[in-house]
Design a binder for these strands. Structure first.
Length: 579
RNA sequence: GUCCCAGUAGCUCAGUCGGAUAGAGCAACAGCCUUCUAAGCUGUGGGUCGGGGGUUCGAAUCCCUCCUGGGACGCCA
């Protein structure tokens, strides 16, 4: 669609003597497609031309717009509504999809490395629905960036260090039943954590004990570290199952403990720059002048804090991993923390701080309340995924019992439903978890998109074109034939045209999703494409149509299929050819 | 108390760098399978865009203010 706008703006700029790119930015899509395909509001021209918008609109419409893309230009009050020549427009879109890689890919990021901090579950705790958000949003952003030629570093910043492990170790020694824990590590370790917090309410000395236990770990107590390493091992095993189901992978699995030996250098650097000041026994960097509270670097007992760790991690990613840009897909409640970390980096003279961005997202709630591992109020992602896959399997058994690879397809659909449900919603909204909503298979859902994709595959399969597609030459010939024979009455009917227009919006939306780090734009748009395709599918017989309409409809089906598939790929969702 | 995020149909949400009559899905009701996958398609009903001011030819969108919900605010991450 951006291409169409550019072409029309180009013609108009010659006529109006106004810059092409300004005109292109003024062009908009009318609220109702009956009005036209594109519109130019003339309000802003009124001041300059000293005429009413209505008169200007009429003048523009009257002048012959010399552009083969424009079918008609009619004034509608202060607007000029343009109709595009459907065959010409279709030919352009199809050529782009067929010949021009730029439809699905870009080169903006060539030579640039982006580090993405994502997922980051905590060791010895269940992988909850809360961590799903960071995982799927981060993955989709990484996919989007890679589609624009960026190199991405997908870093799983595991929560594997901190006082919480002191707590678990204390609880392990006090209440732990080794056999029970071995049998079901994560659940039992989390139960110990919950038990610790309950006990600590009555006996605050337990907290001191936990801090001491963690200090022992920092000092290298081998018994505690052995237990800690075991917790990491069993947690990673458990997480691996979830990641395998989600189809998520990382380039780096670097927990917080990885930076333990890198923090001294950072603290010394801050100190040597004269930024470190003592405050109430702790060491901080003052950030008052940029409107932020002080950033705590060292506790009064000399221990480091998570800001210190994030500073060390940022420098590692920049210096050792050579990342030009650092993204943090982390919940919105850590906004202030990242503002402080980035401000300290700036203060330290690191220019790359301006390329650091916290990609915040809303909180996953349960029954309106924050999920809490401490209170044991969590929904385990694995349970949700398994439930989703089970339901998908039931539906397949009912609707398509002879389907090959039914288990694999059920997995892709069930998991796709859960992922899509998360991605389609605005990042910053809090989500109150509902099994019913997460597992919906009808309406604006992942399975709806996958169903539409499989439908398009099915048609092409029956035409023996699933992999080959319709040749662009054939398509172009047919489009031109239609244009010549019948440019007035429009052989390309409305449902066909609506689908073409939806497809033409893809490159612009992909760019916007990259600029705004917002995968939901892709999710919402692919729903629009699916709606348009299903409408087209319903109204326009494809296989039984006469030539050249048949070829054109097949080509359009193929284009829709490719665009839906690309969208699902970007979102990290499977796209089975048959469901 | 200060700062940040959110508030649009019964529910979940689009639309938010100002443009025409504010759109989907779910739920409810009514239709469409001898025809390419009915996980689909069509139709009906449903709105003080949280309230109030302001800027503008034009405001859900920008500014101010208030209300509601959530979050953050130094030794947790």
């Amino acid at each position: 669609m951006e291409r169409f706008m550019k072409q029309i703006a180009n013609s108009l700029s010659k006529q109006l003597m106004i810059d092409e790119s300004i005109l292109a930015s003024w062009l908009e899509i009318p609220p109702n497609s009956e009005m036209g395909d594109l519109a130019l509001p003339c309000f802003r021209l009124a001041k300059e031309l000293h005429k009413s918008p209505q008169v200007i609109a009429a003048d523009i419409a009257d002048a012959l717009v010399e552009n083969e893309l424009v079918e008609s230009a009619v004034p509608a009050g202060p607007y000029v509504n343009f109709r595009l020549n459907r065959a010409t427009a279709m030919e352009q879109v199809m050529r782009q999809i067929r010949d021009d890689d730029a439809f699905y890919h870009g080169a903006q990021g060539a030579g640039q490395v982006v580090a993405i901090d994502l997922s980051s579950p905590n060791i010895a705790k269940p992988f909850s629905m809360g961590h799903l958000r960071s995982t799927v949003i981060g993955t989709a952003i990484a996919n989007l960036l890679e589609s624009d030629s960026y190199q991405t570093l997908r870093i799983n910043h595991l929560g594997d260090w901190g006082t919480q492990f002191g707590k678990i170790i204390v609880a392990y020694h006090r209440y732990g039943d080794e056999a029970k824990i071995k049998a079901n590590p994560i659940q039992e370790l989390n139960a110990l954590y919950v038990q610790f917090h309950e006990a600590a309410q009555d006996d605050p000395s337990l907290d001191d004990e936990a801090r001491a236990a963690f200090k022992r770990m920092e000092d290298g107590n081998e018994d505690d570290l052995r237990l800690w390493r075991w917790m990491i091992e069993v947690s990673l095993e458990e997480f691996a199952k979830t990641y395998a189901m989600l189809g998520t992978s990382f380039t780096h699995n670097l927990g917080e403990s990885f930076y333990n030996d890198k923090m001294d250098a950072v603290v010394k650097e801050i100190q040597s720059l004269g930024l470190l000041v003592e405050s109430d026994g702790a060491e901080v960097v003052m950030l008052e002048d940029v409107g932020l509270p002080p950033c705590l670097i060292k506790r009064s007992d000399g221990a480091t804090l998570y800001a210190t760790r994030d500073l060390a991690a940022a420098l590692y990613r920049h210096k050792d991993l050579c990342a030009d840009r650092l993204l943090y897909v982390v919940g919105g409640e850590q906004r202030l923390h990242f503002e402080q970390v980035f401000a300290v980096l700036t203060r330290m003279g690191y220019d790359f701080a301006k390329n650091c961005k916290h990609i915040a997202f809303g909180m996953m709630r349960l029954g309106g309340k924050k999920m809490s591992t401490r209170k044991g109020q969590v929904v385990r992602l694995q349970e949700v995924l398994e439930e989703a896959v089970g339901r998908a399997k039931e539906i397949i058994n009912e609707k398509n019992p002879s389907l090959q690879n039914a288990d694999l397809v059920a997995k892709e659909i069930g998991v796709g439903a859960v992922i899509f449900n998360d991605l389609k919603t605005n990042r910053l909204h809090d989500i109150d978890f509902s099994m019913e909503t997460a597992l919906a298979f009808e309406g604006e859902t992942g399975p709806y998109v996958q169903y539409t994709h499989a439908r398009s595959c099915s048609v092409l399969r029956k035409a023996y074109l699933l992999d080959a597609g319709v040749s662009p030459e054939q398509l172009v010939t047919h489009s031109q034939a239609i244009a010549q024979v019948d440019s007035q009455t429009v052989s390309l009917d409305d449902p066909t045209w609506e689908l073409i227009k939806q497809l033409s919006l893809f490159p612009g939306l992909r760019n916007r999703a990259i600029d705004e780090y917002d995968p939901s734009l892709i999710a919402k748009h692919v729903l629009d494409i699916c709606q348009a395709f299903n409408h087209f599918y319903h109204d326009c017989p494809i296989l039984t149509a006469d030539e050249p309409i048949r070829s054109i409809r097949l080509a359009l089906t193929d284009a829709a299929r490719l665009t839906i598939r690309n969208s699902l790929q970007l979102l990290g969702i499977g796209y089975p050819a048959e469901i």
